[in-house]
Design a protein around this nucleic acid. Structure first.
Length: 536
RNA sequence: GCGUUCGUAGCUCAGCUGGAUAGAGCACCGGUUUGCGGUACCGGCGGUCAGGGAUUCGAAUUCCUUCGAGCGCACCA
């Protein structure tokens, strides 16, 4: 809709025109301050320019009126245009807001280590990534969701040790001491018991077999992780294991060296990456004295593999505590001969949780982490997704669980769902058939109804904007606002029994379509009725 | 110290590439249809957009600077 207006104006003025939503809806559907920028070039007052421009729009098919107010140019779309568009949307529900972007995108997110269940910080990145994924799919991008599994390195050994220690204490009843760095948590119990079945209790007393224990356990942890993700409607297309990459290390090193002979060098018996020359603070070790590659080496191979698979664009979503890591990966990508501008790294900031004012604490390795699964159990997956999607991902977030358990307008997910449910209820209540409703015209709506229709038809622009700016909260903001318009309209206007019943119901169908489509892009299913007992 | 993200109402946050009177929700106070789910709606209270400077027709938004906060600054992943 906006694209059409925008294209029309671009053609008319021969330049890109800024379109915005007027502050006050009585001004019209769209507005532009273009007269202000033209004022300087034309050496005339903005008011005069706006007047001239407005009067030049007499014969447009899309607009009913174009007016100038204090230098702004305000456009009002024609009823024909809105009516046709709404009808098309209702008849092509699944295509509403869809586009056909062709770009191939690789989106990597979550990628939490397989050493324990996901905590609340991971959940934020997970929701953010999955929402972007759904938006991109809707826009027609060929996007792949990928999870990078860090199943090599010290932390895996530590997992084995942690399970063994847990088992020795709780199954063999030995008295043990936990070093600070060991993993803790309830999940160890399941793994320890599983290990007894698989290997027998002997394994816990045999240090030489801890590696074996760890390699088995990491798959179990991945199952726990993918299950919590699935419970939140998050799924991945591909998993890439770090352990599968190191065999390519020599080839990748040669590749960097052939692009730039200074990319890699030896010093103090270690191998270094010249990342400082590419904007990093320091050069980085990639192979230690003893020949073991560092974590960065694995990531270099991984990114090489990503680029060799051939996508147009790459997006990584990382926790904010990894932001210092970006320059070295970009450096490596350039040494590999690729354009680091194609690699976009987004950060999900920390989350702090309150419950009735009490702050929760998060520490990665202590047993008292706040698990994603616990929060899902407490407030439900829908509420979790809504809250995480509704805040800009690059700012720290604090929220109180209590707010998302309420069943009233203070809980945004409830509020939006209730709007959708109200529409379903009233449609069912009406005696009119679906056919009669669809046959009616949306022309001649009064002003409030017209505004509601316009708002509902704005979803496609919101989807495009939310994805291209990577700001998924634009979608939740939109849904909250649309729900508010609906509730207000419902209060102001009697629908059943009115002369315009069919017309108004059709309008509500358009609103419901927008709500439902918007929710589905957040991995949330729209509800047709609310129940008071439904305390998720 | 260096890098980075930020600082908007009592609280949690929106405010897009500069544009019309800086917005929501919570909290607090007061109201509402003979009408379809009052699980809703409306109104009030509340702001020096951290401070200062610059750019211009115009700045919460861009730039500089001061102050304050989170995160990072490993041969851990």
């Amino acid at each position: 809709m906006k694209q059409r207006v925008s294209a029309l104006l671009r053609e008319k003025f021969g330049r890109e025109v800024v379109l915005e939503k007027p502050k006050d809806r009585s001004f019209g559907h769209f507005a532009t301050p273009i007269a202000f920028s033209l004022a300087k070039e034309l050496r005339k007052s903005p008011m005069v320019i706006a007047e001239d421009l407005a009067s030049s729009f007499n014969d447009s098919e899309i607009f009913t009126s174009v007016e100038s107010v204090k230098g702004y140019l305000n456009f009002r779309l024609s009823e024909h245009f809105l009516n046709d568009y709404a009808l098309w949307a209702l008849e092509n529900e699944n295509d509403f807001g869809k586009q056909e972007k062709k770009e191939k995108i690789l989106l990597e997110f979550v990628s939490a280590n397989p050493t324990g269940p996901l905590h609340i910080g991971h959940a934020r990145g997970a929701v953010y990534g999955d929402t972007l994924y759904r938006l991109a799919k809707h826009l027609g991008y060929d996007i792949t969701a990928e999870y990078y599994v860090n199943d090599a390195g010290n932390q895996i050994d530590l997992l084995g040790l942690s399970i063994a220690l847990y088992a020795r204490e709780n199954i063999l009843n030995e008295s043990v001491e936990y070093p600070e760095s060991y993993y803790r948590g309830e999940y160890l119990d399941g793994l320890a018991k599983g290990a007894v079945e698989k290997f027998g209790v002997e394994i816990f007393s045999d240090e030489s077999r801890y590696k074996e224990l760890a390699l088995w356990a990491k798959d179990g942890v991945m199952d726990i992780i993918t299950k919590s993700l699935a419970d939140t409607n998050i799924f991945f297309d591909t998993f890439v294991k770090e352990s599968s990459l190191y065999s390519e290390w020599d080839r990748v090193m040669d590749k960097m060296a052939s692009t730039d002979k200074n990319a890699i060098y030896k010093k103090e018996d270690k191998v270094w990456l010249s990342s400082e020359a590419k904007g990093d603070d320091n050069d980085r070790v990639v192979v230690r004295e003893d020949g073991r590659p560092t974590y960065l080496a694995g990531d270099i191979v991984y990114h090489n593999q990503k680029f060799e698979r051939g996508y147009d664009h790459y997006i990584n979503i990382w926790g904010a505590d990894h932001h210092g890591y970006i320059p070295r990966v970009n450096a490596a990508v350039e040494y590999l001969g690729y354009d680091s501008n194609k690699l976009e790294t987004l950060l999900a900031q920390m989350v702090s949780l309150l419950k009735d004012g009490e702050p929760y604490k998060m520490s990665k390795r202590a047993g008292n982490v706040i698990l994603m699964s616990d929060i899902v159990e407490e407030i439900g997956a829908d509420a979790l997704r809504f809250i995480f999607a509704s805040k800009k991902s690059d700012t720290a977030l604090e929220f109180d669980l209590a707010e998302f358990k309420k069943q009233d307008s203070s809980n945004p997910i409830f509020y939006v769902q209730y709007a959708h449910a109200r529409i379903q209820t009233i449609i069912n209540k009406s005696e009119l058939s679906k056919h009669e409703i669809m046959e009616s015209s949306l022309m001649g709506l009064e002003e409030n109804a017209d505004i509601l229709l316009f708002d509902a038809l704005l979803l496609p622009e919101v989807i495009e904007d939310a994805f291209s700016s990577r700001q998924v909260q634009k979608l939740t903001d939109y849904l909250k606002a649309l729900a508010a318009s609906l509730h207000k309209f419902y209060y102001d206007c009697k629908i059943i029994g009115s002369d315009d019943e069919a017309k108004l119901l059709k309008l509500l169908l358009v609103v419901a379509l927008s709500l439902k489509t918007g929710l589905s892009l957040m991995g949330i299913e729209a509800k047709d009725h609310m129940s008071r007992e439904d305390n998720a």
